[in-house]
Amino acid sequence: MDTTQLLKGVLDLAVLAVVSTEDGYGYDVVRRLRAAGLADVGDASVYGTLRRLYTAGALTSYVAPSDEGPHRKYYGINPRGRALLGEQTVTWSAFADTMQGLLKAAATPAEEVTR
């Protein structure tokens, strides 16, 4: 299954989750997402998502000079972002449970047939 399609639906949640642990600049968020296992995540998608969440009022943003070159734009979560993270976590958990139940139900009869 194409994980990029799946990612599109949950990228907001993933980015919120990453930023909620610690403020981060664009590529830093990408790196942490990939480290967490979302290897297929595109950096432009993450930057766009950060910008959209910022516009929606879920993130704060500030520019900091970097040690080694151009300045960096950091994003941090704010109360609104935390509320959003909470809502989306509930939604995702329910969805994931539903999917898991569905798949389990689909797998069980198949096993019986093969026996």
């Binding site: 600049y25 990408v30 930057y47 910008r51 910022y54 520019v63 970097s66 151009p70 300045h71």
Partner: peptide, 14 residues
């Protein structure tokens, strides 16, 4: 600007 601020630094990192 919001979309591309810091993009250079991000890309250099990448």
């Amino acid at each position: 600007d919001e979309l591309t601020d810091g993009l250079e630094a991000d890309l250099v990192d990448a």
